[in-house]
Structures are given as C-alpha cells and as structure tokens.
C-alpha cells in the first residue's frame, strides 16, 4: 500500500513541475538575440573611457596632473605632459585597456572631470595591440579634438611665454628707478 502511495505522490510531484514548465512556456521572452538586438545599458555603466572636449575653451579638460595615474591599481594610464601651470595640458594620453579593471577609481580621482566612462562595452578583440587606446581614440571628437587640444594649448603656452618675456624685458629696462617693484614682479 505504501509503495503505491509513494509512487502516486512521486508522480504528482512530476506533474506539478510539468505544470509550471508549461505555464512558463507562455511567458514573454527575457533574452535578446545579441549581435542583432542590443539590451539597454544603464547610464552608469562603466565602459570605454572618453576624455571630454571642452568646446568653450577649445581643449580637453585634462591638465596632466597625473592623479588618475596615482589612483590606478593596475598602471593602465601613461601620459605625456604639454607645458605646465595655468595652461598645462596633455600631448599624449594612452590607456592599455588590456590591463584595465574598469574600477572607476581614475574617474573618481580626477578633479577636473577630464576622464569619464561611456556605456560602450564592445571592446573585445583578437589582438592585444588593439587594447591600447591612444589619445586620438580616447578624446571626445577623436583625432581632430586631440589636434585642436594641442593647438590651443601650445598657442596659449607660447602667448604666456611671450608675455613673460615682455614683462622680463620691461622689468630689465625699468630696473633703475623701479627697484621697489622688481621683487614683487619676480614673486
């Protein structure tokens, strides 16, 4: 008697399961057919980096302060500075995304909002060299933006240098009677 009861209850448990599977057959599909359709990515998604281009100033926000390099746990970033001080910027900025963990620490470290992350996630490649992103592909606006950035900064630096030289010359000329002003200007 027990065996029959056992058999029956076991059979019922299968039927219950089948019923649930059947009910799920009528549900909406939850998957997307990836390369053809793409699911929405959250706005905060941490994907490929971008260096925002500041239209108002005609240059990238990056000043080459290297705080992102110090914040990075895996040495992804290398950069070449262009000038220093008020008009300082970058000549080159290279990210080896083959090492990158997309941890967001560089973005958080940046005080100038000069590096941000986009929602672009399709970064896979069969070649390691493709993982190394130069400034021309990281800058918002591509190579044109990188060139504009270089031109703006080098013009500003040249102007600054010229101004300084003129001031120094002026200070040298008026050195005789303006002795009281000279140290002030020097400082």
């Amino acid at each position: 008697m027990n065996t029959i009861q056992d058999l029956f209850s076991g059979f019922m448990s299968f039927l219950r399961g089948m019923k649930i599977t059947g009910a799920n057959l009528g549900r909406d599909k939850t998957t997307v057919l990836y390369p053809y359709e793409k699911a929405d990515v959250a706005p905060r998604y941490r994907g490929l980096f971008v260096l925002p281009f500041n239209e108002a100033n005609g240059r990238l926000n990056c000043t080459g302060c290297t705080l992102c390099i110090q914040a990075c746990p895996t040495n992804v970033i290398t950069l070449t500075k262009l000038g220093a001080g008020k008009h300082g910027g970058i000549q080159d900025f290279q990210m080896d995304l083959g090492r990158c963990m997309f941890c967001n620490l560089c973005v958080e470290a940046c005080p100038f909002e000069a590096i941000e992350m986009t929602t672009q996630f399709e970064l896979a490649s069969t070649d390691r060299n493709v993982c190394v992103f130069p400034l021309t592909s990281l800058a918002q606006g591509g190579a044109a933006a990188a060139e504009k950035n270089y031109n703006t900064i080098s013009t500003a630096l040249a102007a600054e240098a010229a101004e300084k030289a003129a001031k120094a010359a002026a200070a040298g000329e008026s050195g005789g009677h303006g002795a009281a002003h000279a140290p002030k200007e020097g400082a």
């Binding site: 939850t30 990515v41 959250a42 905060r44 998604y45 941490r46 963990m101 997309f102 941890c103 967001n104 620490l105 992350m117």
Partner: peptide, 22 residues
C-alpha cells in the same frame, strides 16, 4: 538566471558593473 538577470540589472543601474562592482 532569469531572476538573477533582473537583479544584475539593478546592480548595474546602481554601481555601473554587473559582476565586479567595486
């Protein structure tokens, strides 16, 4: 995994990553 997908979507919405949240 269907349920987990919704959960990961929420995590992604919040943290920006699906698995390695940091």
């Amino acid at each position: 995994f269907r349920e987990r997908e919704k959960c990961l979507d929420l995590m992604e919405c919040m943290t920006g990553a699906r698995l390695t949240y940091n």
